[in-house]
Structure formats: C-alpha cells, structure tokens
C-alpha cells in the first residue's frame, strides 16, 4: 500500500516541477474562461446562464491537454518497467496514477473555480452546485483520460489522438456535470438526478478505467 501512495506523491510532485502539467492545465483553464467572458460581452443575465457549460467545457479541455503527461514520460525514461516489475496488481498502479492526475489537475481546477466563476457573475449560493459537480465529475475525467494516456503511451505527440479517444467517453460526464451545475444554480429539481448520474459515471470509470489501463500498459511494455 505504501507503493500506492508513493506513486501518488511522486506524480503530484512531478506535476508541480519544471515541465509538469499542473500549472499549464490551470493556466489554460483560466485563459479559456477569460476569453469566453470577453467574447460574450457585458450581458450579465446571459453570462449567468452559460456559466456552467463554459466552466465545465473549459475544465474538460484543460484536463485533456495534461493527459499526455500521465504515462508517456514514464515509458520514455524507463520508469514504466519499474512500475510494472514492482506492481502486484497493475490496475491498482493505474488507479494511483489516475488519482495523482486528479489531484494535480482536477482538484486544482476546482480550487480555481470560485475566482474564475466571478467573471460569469456566479457567486454565493449559485457557486456550490458548480463546485460540487466538479468535485464529483473531475475524478471521472482523470480516470477515463488516463486510460487513453495508457493506450497511447508509446506514441509521440499523442495529444490529438487522446482527444479523439476520450471525447465520446467524456460526453456523459460533461452532460451531467454541466446539467447539475445549471440545474442547481436555477433551483431546478433535476439537480439531484444529474448529480446522481454524474456520480454513477465517475464510479463506473473508477472500476473499468484502471482495468483497461492495466491491459493497455501491459501491451505497451512489449
């Protein structure tokens, strides 16, 4: 079990060192939201309406650009062999890698959300559904995304391929995540159902993504 936490601690540390993806992801997240806000203009009512879809899409894109960093460096410097030969259950190692990715991107994006949401006139009680939906949905983004990263670990410049693989798989999380945030802010009774389906999507990813990642990694060791 100490290996599990050692992998998380190392990957989070690497994400914040030079060349790590954490600050890039959060900067990209901020940039997209600011650009959207500039493009929409000064209509406050419209801004509150589109806040949830804009923040959710930006979070998804920011996650996407950081996925290449999950497994490719490990394969390029030989660390993947070390992880494989010390791992009892490769799926558990994959789960640790996905958890580290969530901490260094998803959690960071969630933490930056209260400030960026101000640009879309979201504050006070309307903020909570947005934060809650990101807290529940972002782990699913990291889990599914790390599977695509495992599949493409051996390919240079796999960023676009990763985007093509994960986009359809991300659709349920985006729909229920943005849906929950919008419904919650509007006081719509659909809020609970959307949150429950979002949670179900993340849990489904938590079970199947590590197993699929492990199979993809075994293939990539050859």
């Amino acid at each position: 079990m100490s290996a599990f936490f050692a992998i998380i601690a190392r990957d989070v540390a690497l994400a914040f060192r030079a060349g790590g993806g954490a600050l890039q992801a959060v900067s990209f997240f901020a940039l997209t939201i600011v650009l959207f806000a500039l493009a929409v203009g000064p209509d406050l009512a419209l801004m509150s309406d589109i806040a949830a879809p804009v923040l959710w899409t930006s979070a998804l894109l920011a996650t996407l650009i950081s996925l290449e960093q999950v497994y490719r460096p490990d394969r390029e410097d030989g660390s993947l062999d070390v992880l494989a030969e010390t791992s009892d259950v490769l799926a558990l190692t994959a789960f640790a890698k996905a958890t580290a990715h969530w901490i260094s991107t998803g959690l960071l994006l969630t933490a930056a959300t209260p400030i960026l949401a101000l640009l879309f006139n979201i504050e006070g009680p309307a903020l909570w559904p947005l934060l809650l939906s990101l807290l529940i949905g972002a782990p699913g983004l990291s889990l599914i995304g790390s599977f695509a990263a495992a599949l493409t670990a051996a390919l240079p410049r796999a960023g676009l391929l990763i985007a093509i693989i994960v986009s359809p798989l991300y659709a349920p999380i985006l729909i229920f995540g943005a849906g929950a945030a919008s419904a919650g802010a509007a006081g719509d009774p659909q809020y609970g159902a959307n949150l429950a389906l979002l949670g179900a999507s993340s849990l489904f990813a938590a079970i199947f993504s590590p197993l699929a990642s492990a199979a993809a990694l075994r293939f990539n060791l050859d």
């Binding site: 190392r10 060192r17 030079a18 460096p73 660390s79 062999d81």
Partner: peptide
C-alpha cells in the same frame, strides 16, 4: 530486477 539502458529516474527529482 531489470535495469535497461535508460536509468528510470526522473530528471526533475
């Protein structure tokens, strides 16, 4: 234990 030509260390650590 396998040690290939790559050293399996992280450059920034």
């Amino acid at each position: 234990v396998f040690c290939g030509v790559l050293n399996a260390g992280k450059p920034t650590l």
